[in-house]
Design a protein around this nucleic acid. Structure first.
Lengths: 204, 204
DNA sequence: CACAAAAACAGAATTGACTCAATTTTAGAA
DNA sequence: TTCTAAAATTGAGTCAATTCTGTTTTTGTG
């Protein structure tokens, strides 16, 4: 049996997330009150806390969906990378960055990032760290692929390089979401400029 | 006249910061109540909010003092760098990292970082961004110095490289403060490993 | 010195996230 | 169908940051 209880549970999860996503978008994270989310999802305040440990975890569920989509989109690039190191990196990181504001506003990103460092052991804190690691692994996979194909030098420390590239992009992205007026195009240009140093060092 | 009002103001600032620093250390950031800080500083709650916009700004004042000390310590290295690129970078970043936990616990760092991304336009948010920029500039200055002396290639994009090195260190530091069990020695080793790639690319 | 305006202070009231004890609903055994 | 234990829901209550308004202190002028 699919179980009445299990079905109701999934349904309530969905209603809470949908209500929260809408309110976060309309009123911002701080502006969206748990009371309002509860009303909109037609559950009580207590029920929300039965499903999520705290307000941040609700945002976390939304962020996780977004990042997982990005990871999926990245798979194609790793499997079939452009024919030189510079373009390969630019394409993969470009996917990450261009996707980033589809569902999440800069304010939501700021909150999500803040919560993940503030409460690294909360469910979302751990999930976020895991997502960062997955992104790092994907970049590492791309580098390994490029080394395999013979586009990148084999004597380079691939894992360390992958982490370096991810860390740099991530910090640039953090600065990007901190400034509302910052544009995606400028972010990509700046990252490309930094990566050029690395590309020169590792391209065969 | 030095002004009674001005003197009282400076005195109250000092008392608030001292009380807060002590309580943050003893009870942690979340554990330190504004009410208690006010009592210990012998001012009212309202007065604290007259001096600082919010609880985060109090922590911010403490963090700023710490980072400024680090910047000062770094000046010596820039003025008189070790005789090869790898050691020069390692020495400067080593100063940053080794100093970092002198006055501030990991929990305080987590809070400070979280606040700076959560409220980038608050007084502390802006100050923190400024501090990051100063650290980046110091690394850039070191690279420029190494290029001058002839230890680093002149055809490298120094500013971009400086930002890359800072961003990577900073992100590694963020992950470090997120895990209570992480050790400074491991952090330095990991950063050294990553920088090795860069050092190989830029040393003459 | 007396006084009015400006600045700073005080702490009660507000606000919103989160808790918890009581109530309701579901599962499944008899 | 009836009953009981377990699971889930509810919302009033708690707690701590922040706001707000009335009071006090300081300053500078006549």
């Amino acid at each position: 049996m699919s179980g009445l209880r299990a079905r109701q549970k999934a349904d309530r999860h969905r209603r809470i997330i949908e209500a929260a996503a809408e309110l976060f978008r309309e009123a911002g994270y701080e502006g969206a009150k748990i009371e309002t989310i509860a009303a909109q999802a037609e559950v009580s305040i207590g029920t929300i806390y039965n499903y999520y440990e705290n307000k941040g975890d609700i945002l976390g569920a939304i962020v996780s969906m977004e990042v997982n989509e990005v990871l999926n989109a990245g798979r194609g690039v790793v499997a079939n990378p452009p024919a030189n190191v510079g373009d390969a990196l630019d394409t993969l990181l470009g996917i990450y960055i261009e996707h980033s504001l589809h569902y999440l506003s800069k304010e939501m990103w700021r909150q999500a990032m803040a919560i993940s460092t503030q409460l690294p052991d909360s469910p979302f804190g751990q999930a976020y760290t895991g997502l960062d690691r997955s992104l790092t692994e994907q970049i590492r996979a791309l580098i390994a692929r490029l080394q395999e194909i013979g586009l990148a030098r084999r004597d380079i420390d691939g894992p360390a390089l992958g982490e370096l590239i991810f860390n740099n992009m991530n910090m640039m992205f953090i600065e990007f979401v901190k400034r509302d007026e910052a544009r995606i195009a400028e972010l990509r240009t700046a990252i490309r400029r930094q990566n050029r140093i690395l590309v020169a060092a590792i391209a065969v």
